[in-house]
Simulated scan of single mutants.
Amino acid sequence: MDTLTSMRVFRLAVELKSFAAAARRLDMSPAMASKHVMHLERRLGSLLLNRTSRHLSLTESGATYFEHVRQWLDELDDVEAAVAQSTASPHGTLKLSVPVWMANPDFVGVLNDYRKRYPDVMFDVDLSGRFVNLVEEAFDLALRVTNPLSLGPALIARPIAPVTFHLVASPAYLRVAGEPSDARALASHTVLGYSMLPANNTLEVEGPRGLEALKFDPVLQTNNESLLRLAALEGMGLAFLPKVLVARDLEAGALVAVLTDYRFFGTKLYGVYRHRKYLSPKVRTFLDFLCDDARLR
C-alpha cells in the first residue's frame, strides 16, 4: 500500500472528521480509506485515531503525527507547485467560494473568458454566502469582501478590485415616492434592508456635508443581494447593491442610482487562499485574471 497516499487519506480524514468524506474527495471507498490509515498505524506501531460509529478523534500519538504529516505534505505540494509553474499549464478543478452577488453576467463572462484561455480548468463554485473553511472544506480560493487583518496567519488575502455600492430604485418607485435629496430624506422612503448592515439600521456615510448618519426602517430584510435586486426591480423600495450586480440594470434604465454624491460601503474584494509558498497554476492564473479584468470594478 502506498504510504504517501495513506498520509493524504489520514490528513483528509482528520480535517474532514470522516473517513467517508475523505474517501469521496480522493475517489475511493470508505473501506479503502480506513485501510490506508490502518496501514500507517501498523507501520508506526501506534494507534492514530479513536474511532466510533459517528466520530473520529486523534490520539496523542495521532496528534503529533498529524502536525508533522500536514507540514510535510504542504511542503511537498509547494515543491510540486513550484515545478508545475514552469512545466505545466493550469488544469483540474478550481473550487471557489464567492459572494451571492457574484451570480451576475459580468462574473460569468470572466469565468467563460478564463476557460477559453485555460480549457483544462473546471470550476466548482459555491454561492451559498456562508463563511467557508478553506482548509477543512478543501476550497482553493474564496472571493470575499473582508477585513484582511481578521483572517489570521493561515490565510493570505490578495486585493482584486474595489467594491462600489449604489443606492438604487426602479423608475416606477421614484415616480410615486420621489427621489431623496439627501441622507435625511431616507427616513420618509421605503428601504430594502441588507442583513449585513448594523442591527440598528443606521449607516454612517460620506456625503457632501461630510459624515452623515442614514437612519431607516426596512420593509424587507435579507442577506441575499440577488433578492434585494429583484425587489428593487419590482418597485418595492430603495436598495444598497454592489455596482457589478446592477451595472446592466442601470445602463438599461431598469434601475436608477440615487444620492450619487454619497459614498456607500467603500471596501474591496479580496482573493483569499491558504498560506502557501507556491500557488498552484490554476489559482495563480485565475487570481491574475481577476485582477486584470475591468468587469469586476
Rank of each mutant, 00 (worst) to 15 (best):
Y273D: 05
L94N: 07
L230Y: 13
L44E: 14
V83N: 06
G92P: 03
L227M: 09
T52G: 10
R263G: 01
K95F: 05
P180Q: 00
R130A: 09
S128I: 09
V37L: 12
D120Q: 14
T87S: 10
T59W: 13
L255F: 01
K243R: 15
Y118R: 04
L143G: 07
A154T: 14
G266W: 01
G109F: 09
M38C: 11
L26A: 06
N200A: 15
F264A: 12
S6K: 08
I156W: 11
A177F: 00
A103Q: 03
S34K: 14
S97Y: 00
I160S: 12
L143N: 02
A88S: 11
V219C: 06
L48E: 04
D2V: 11
L76V: 13
L96E: 07
S150L: 11
T190G: 01
A21Q: 14
M32C: 02
F139K: 02
L111R: 07
E136H: 15
T3R: 15
V176F: 04
R25Y: 09
L96F: 09
V9Q: 05
L214W: 11
R284D: 14
R115Y: 08
M236E: 13
G193D: 02
V98G: 10
Y262V: 08
H68E: 13
A231H: 11
G207W: 03
P281Q: 09
T260E: 14
Y270A: 06
S195E: 14
N147I: 02
L290M: 12
Y273K: 07
L143H: 03
R263N: 08
L48W: 07
E15I: 00
F265A: 13
R158C: 15
R24P: 04
R51M: 04
R8G: 01
L167P: 04
V121I: 07
L12N: 13
D124F: 05
S226Y: 02
K268A: 15
D182W: 00
H39E: 15
V9R: 09
V145D: 01
D261Y: 01
F264C: 11
L49E: 03
A169L: 10
Y114E: 05
E75D: 15
E225A: 14
R295L: 11
A157M: 11
R11W: 04
E75F: 03
T52Q: 12
T285M: 02
P218K: 05
P105I: 05
L233I: 12
M236I: 02
P218I: 01
W101L: 02
R70W: 02
G45M: 03
D2N: 15
N223C: 01
G62W: 12
F289P: 02
H91K: 08
D74I: 01
F264N: 13
R263Y: 03
K35L: 14
A294W: 08
Y173C: 10
L4A: 13
A177Y: 02
V145C: 09
V98S: 04
F139S: 06
N133H: 15
V9I: 14
L174G: 06
V219E: 08
S46Q: 15
E67F: 02
P30T: 01
N223F: 08
T190A: 07
H55P: 03
E41D: 07
S188R: 13
F123V: 06
K268I: 00
Y118V: 09
S61L: 08
R130Q: 09
A252Q: 14
